[in-house]
Amino acid sequence: MEPKIRFQNVSYFYGDRPALRGVTLDIPPNAITVIFGPAGGGKTTLLRLINRLNDEVEGTRMTGRVLLDGQDIYTPGVDVPLLRRRVGMVFALPLPLPGTVRENILYGPKLAGVRDQARLDEILERSLRLAALWDEVKDRLDDPASRLSGGQQQRLCIARSLAMEPEVLLLDEPTSGLDPISTGKVEEALQELKHQYTIVIVPHSVQQAARVADYAAFFLMGELVECQPGRDLFTTPRDRRTEDYITGRFG
């Protein structure tokens, strides 16, 4: 199958400091790809290159190419807001926008120009159901989003991304602030979602990486050490450094 996303020899610099070094990586569609490794390895940077969110950071430089469906997303003339509708993102902390549950979910679709009320209602219910949140909030749609629990807020953020009907969903340590039960709910939701979406996730632990990975890519100091199907990487890693990290022998 054609890879959904391709990194071709991508290097990325904050000022002079490299955050990614010559990364070449294919991400397949309709699967969960896990990006993991120690802190500062460039995982967040890699994710934010896919929706060009790093455009907002000043003083950076990139070489190489990032392709989405075979198209270079860094060629001049790319419609960046449109790209970000195709590539949704969930952040490490739940970041509800000011306003109600409903306003949060419909923020993206309204910016995209959806005006029809019936259509908006449909998007609202569909995305909350996909994020496994509908039953918990269906009577609280017009409550401030900040009144939801942390776990609910994070699923709200997932639902908010899904409301854009994206093709790719990027999640950067989406469960780092959540308790095990909420984490379980998010992971379950992801297992359902992968049938329709390409999912790239930075997990908050090696255990989570092993639980959710269809494919896993191990990053160390900006370098891709190896990428394999999850069941292979976590049982028989090819690289010594990967093995050290997943067995906890890493300094």
Binding site: E56, L82, R84, G88, L95, G108, L111
Partner: peptide, 21 residues
């Protein structure tokens, strides 16, 4: 600053993030 980032990640232009959030 996160609000601006969230708005951008949902396909908002910089001005839309300022205007609505």
């Amino acid at each position: 600053g996160e609000f601006r980032l969230v708005s951008a990640s949902l396909g908002g232009t910089r001005w839309q993030g300022i205007r609505y959030i």
